[in-house]
C-alpha cells in the first residue's frame, strides 16, 4: 500500500464519518426526549456540516459555520433553553398518519431533483479555489444584498431585544 492510497483512504473515511455524524446528530436533535440532548445533537450536526463545506472546497464557509452557528447561535440556544426550561413539556407529539408527510415531501423533492439531474454529469472534483475575491464581490457586485442583510440583522437584533423586554418595561 502506497502512501497516496493510504491518504485517499483517510480522506474517504473522514468524509464518511462526517455523513454519519450529520445523520446521527440530526436524528438525535429531533427524536431525543430531553431538550439538552437535542441541543447536543444540533451541535454535532452543525460541526458535521462545517466538514461538508470543507469537502466542498470552501474552508472560508467551514470557519464561518463554526463561528456563526457553533459559536454564536448555539450559545444563544443554550441560554434560551435554560431560561425557558419547564419539566413535563418535552418530547414529541404522537405522529400517527401525519408522520408520513415529511418523508413524502422529502422523497418527492429528491425525486424531482434527481430527475432534473439525469441528463447532467454529476461527478466533479470540488477543489479549493482562491476565495479572496469574495470580499471585493461583497462590496461591489453584491453590495445591495449585503446591505439588506446588514439591515435585516440590525432589525432582528433590535426586535429580539425589544420583544424580550416588553414585560420588564411595563
Amino acid at each position: 500500500m502506497t502512501f497516496e492510497r493510504f491518504a485517499l483512504d483517510i480522506y474517504a473515511l473522514s468524509f464518511g464519518t462526517m455523513l454519519v455524524q450529520i445523520t446521527i446528530g440530526a436524528i438525535m436533535a429531533v427524536r431525543s426526549r430531553n431538550l439538552v440532548h437535542c441541543f447536543l445533537g444540533l451541535v454535532m450536526t452543525l460541526v458535521g456540516v462545517a466538514g461538508i463545506y470543507y469537502f466542498l472546497g470552501s474552508p472560508l464557509l467551514a470557519v464561518m459555520q463554526i463561528m456563526i452557528y457553533v459559536g454564536a447561535v448555539c450559545v444563544a440556544i443554550a441560554f434560551g433553553l435554560s431560561l425557558t426550561r419547564k419539566a413535563g413539556e418535552e418530547g414529541l407529539q404522537p405522529a400517527g398518519l401525519r408522520g408520513f408527510v415529511p418523508p413524502f415531501i422529502t422523497l418527492a423533492m429528491l425525486g424531482s431533483v434527481l430527475l432534473g439531474l439525469s441528463e447532467r454529469e454529476w461527478v466533479g472534483y470540488p477543489k479549493k479555489i482562491d476565495e479572496s475575491p469574495i470580499g471585493q464581490m461583497l462590496l461591489g457586485e453584491y453590495l445591495l444584498p449585503f446591505e439588506v442583510i446588514s439591515i435585516l440583522l440590525t432589525v432582528a437584533v433590535i426586535g429580539a431585544i425589544s420583544v424580550a423586554l416588553i414585560r420588564r418595561r411595563n
Binding site: 450529520i22 445523520t23 440530526a26 436533535a29 429531533v30 450536526t45 415529511p102 418523508p103 422529502t106 423533492m109
Partner: peptide, 9 residues
Amino acid sequence: HLLFGIGLY
C-alpha cells in the same frame, strides 16, 4: 435532503 426531511419532521 435527509437533513431537510428530519428538520421538517
